[in-house]
């Protein structure tokens, strides 16, 4: 090892480790506290669990409705992401392929969606959902998320435009129409971009809090973030149960992040800092 590297390591590593500790400790504390009984937590909040207590997990899923929240979140996230992926790919193809009047204006209108903060829409959104009789349904959330195609359109339009004209022309010569060109050639080529958009939007939909807060009312429609908050008030003084809810809620986004880190990072680079 070069001497310069060793000196740099001596300078930087303490900082890296300190910041890692600041990042990780609250999360690690949350996870190991979920394996302690309430009495154990309150006799010593720092201590690691002496025995692996699983009672919290049983209670959260049986007495609490964690399983239901989980199912709701999964259903809503998967349907929403599948839909917005399909819709944004279709629209991006149109923007990249066709010339039509007011195309640039329409594109800018779509980009507007990247800037609108969700909380600016909740009051009128609530009224709209009441008129449509969608309050307290999955559809209120799914349709709302279907509207967040801006990021996907931006990323995929750039990609489709970068596909060499020769490839498209070759397909045309073979007699392929736009639908074949789109499904057989463009979509397979765009797989990495599609993965990026899917991962990024999945995280965002899974963690979204303000829309479920406003659009759902009954406990059996809650998504995970909302459910966690509900558990939090239900088990006000039972920290073991709260910690368990929090741990379970963190599991999915964390796993998705660990598995698809590359796609997630690519999403950040694509400039989609929303959420």
């Amino acid at each position: 090892m070069r001497r310069g590297t060793a000196i740099k390591m001596a300078i930087f590593y303490p900082f890296f480790l300190l910041i890692s500790a600041v990042i990780l400790y609250p999360l690690v504390w949350m996870v190991y506290s979920s394996f302690k009984s309430n009495d154990d937590i309150f006799s010593d909040v720092f201590a690691l669990p002496q025995v692996l207590y699983l009672g919290n997990y049983q209670t959260v899923f049986s007495e609490g409705a964690m399983g239901t929240y989980f199912k709701n979140s999964l259903l809503i996230s998967v349907v929403s992401v599948a839909g917005l992926l399909a819709f944004s790919a279709l629209a991006a193809y149109a923007f990249a392929t066709f010339e039509f009047r007011a195309k640039n204006v329409l594109f800018v209108v779509f980009l507007l969606g990247l800037m609108v903060p969700p909380q600016a829409l909740i009051i009128s959104g609530f009224k709209l959902m009441s008129i449509l009789r969608l309050i307290d349904t999955y559809w209120a959330l799914i349709f709302t998320y279907f509207g967040w195609t801006s990021f996907g359109i931006l990323v995929l339009r750039n990609f489709f435009q970068s596909v060499p004209q020769e490839i498209r022309d070759a397909a045309k010569v073979d007699g392929a129409g736009h639908w074949q060109l789109f499904t057989r050639i463009m979509l397979p080529l765009a797989r990495p971009s599609l993965a990026t958009i899917a991962i990024f939007n999945f995280m965002w939909v899974w963690n979204e809090f303000i829309y479920p807060l406003v659009y759902t009312q009954s406990n059996d429609k809650y998504t995970v973030p909302l459910g966690v908050l509900f558990l939090n008030s239900q088990y006000n003084i039972e920290w073991g149960l709260q910690m368990t809810g929090l741990t379970v809620a963190t599991l999915v986004p964390l796993l998705v992040y660990l598995i698809f880190q590359r796609q997630f990072v690519r999403g950040i680079m694509a400039g989609a800092l929303k959420g």
Partner: peptide, 29 residues
């Protein structure tokens, strides 16, 4: 070309208009 583009644009456009632009204008109104 509008006619060619429209089927591709329509799904995104419908949800974007109804569930983003309408609430946005609704807030203003």
């Amino acid at each position: 070309h509008w006619l060619l583009a429209l089927p591709f644009l329509l799904p995104a456009l419908v949800f974007y208009v109804v569930f983003l632009l309408v609430p946005l204008l609704g807030t203003l109104a």
